[in-house]
């Protein structure tokens, strides 16, 4: 009896999740991608209801790679708490939700981070009127944090290490935390520096808020998939790598068509003119061309969503290419 039930269980399971995610996505005709409930610059609907942002571009790049059409994505909003169960249960195919790559998430939760699409660190934001210039001056302050995040743990560590007291106010979503901060329920808001810039951009007067200089943690944010489906993990990983490599070779949305006859061998490999690299991923050979043509390279996505000319105004910093003083580095396309 036990054996029989096990077989039933195994077969049901095999049908639902063991089948390759890539095949599931192809058969379904669109990609299901988990994003935030709304964080300007990373994933937020614009005025006409289209999702835009750095993480959204990541999802669209994968859709472009699989279908040759970046619009074939269904976005699922997830909170800090719901994101992991949503991915584990197979409700979404991938998660691109400024999620920090940590050992326990990679190993214990059964996920696989395929890379980093934004190098971040946790910072603090306070009202300018408080006159605070360093996080070490925050003794006794009330701090708003979003629950279920690594920031919660970093925060406790930071105050403990500096031997200063604080009152934590854990809040479910970024929006609620922002409301509490603006209402003065807390003195300080802490999250990834990019999130602070995003929150600051959403206030009625950004000059009323100042981001403190301390960055208290490493927060490599990246897309992740379920552990065990390596084929699908490779597809997402190389969609991300393609955007970075495209920047290295100066391939942009505008000039990609002109480069089809390039005399640089790697550019020809990227664009699918030479070699069968797409087929190795069980994609079409022009998957990288589609990503670059429809989304652009990493730099274009960055400048469009979070760069200095956007309300977030985040410089490239660590997110510049390794050749430009950053740490963005992708393995070769070969």
């Amino acid at each position: 009896m036990k054996k029989l039930l096990s077989i039933v269980a195994v077969s049901v399971f095999a049908l639902s999740a063991n089948a390759g995610t890539l095949d599931d996505v192809k058969n379904r005709g669109f990609l299901k991608c988990g994003v935030t409930t709304g964080l300007a610059g990373f994933a937020a609907p614009d005025d006409s209801g289209n999702w835009t942002g750095l993480d959204v571009d990541m999802c669209r790049a994968v859709a472009a790679a699989v279908f040759g059409d970046s619009s074939k994505v269904e976005f699922t909003t997830t909170t800090g708490k719901s994101r992991f169960p949503t991915l584990a249960s197979g409700e979404i195919d991938m998660l691109a939700r400024n999620t920090t790559w940590t050992l326990s998430r990679d190993v214990n939760l059964g996920f696989e981070f395929v890379g980093v699409n934004f190098y971040d660190g946790q910072g603090f934001m306070v009202p300018t009127s408080l006159g605070v210039s360093s996080a070490t001056e925050l003794d006794g302050a009330t701090v708003c944090i979003q629950t279920g995040t690594t920031t919660e743990l970093n925060l406790a560590d930071f105050f403990r290490a500096n031997n200063i007291g604080y009152e934590a106010l854990p809040i479910e979503t970024n929006d609620e935390a922002r409301e509490n901060l603006f209402a003065g329920r807390c003195d300080v808001f802490t999250t990834d520096a990019s999130g602070l810039s995003s929150t600051r951009a959403q206030s009625d007067n950004p000059n009323k808020w100042v981001v403190l200089p301390e960055i208290i943690s490493k927060e490599p944010l990246g897309p992740l998939v379920r552990h065990g489906d390596h084929q699908w993990g490779d597809v997402v990983r190389w969609s991300l790598n393609t955007m970075i490599i495209a920047e290295e070779f100066g391939l942009t949305q505008a000039n990609v068509d002109d480069n089809m006859n390039s005399n640089i061998p790697e550019v020809l490999r990227i664009l699918g003119v030479e070699g069968g690299y797409g087929e190795m991923l069980e994609l079409s050979n022009d998957f990288a061309y589609n990503i670059i043509k429809q989304i652009g390279n990493y730099s274009e996505s960055y400048e469009r969503n979070v760069g200095p000319d956007t309300p977030l105004a985040i410089g490239r910093g660590l997110n510049a290419l390794w050749t430009d003083g950053g740490i963005l580095y992708a393995p070769p396309f070969r």
Partner: peptide
């Protein structure tokens, strides 16, 4: 058994020992 099987299959840790691990966060 389905739950146990799937948890194992997805490498999700189970057990009660986490209760004695330090929480690492503060409560308001």
């Amino acid at each position: 058994i389905t739950t146990a099987y799937n948890l194992e299959k997805r490498n999700i840790a189970t057990g009660w020992s986490f209760l004695n691990n330090p929480a690492g966060f503060d409560i308001s």
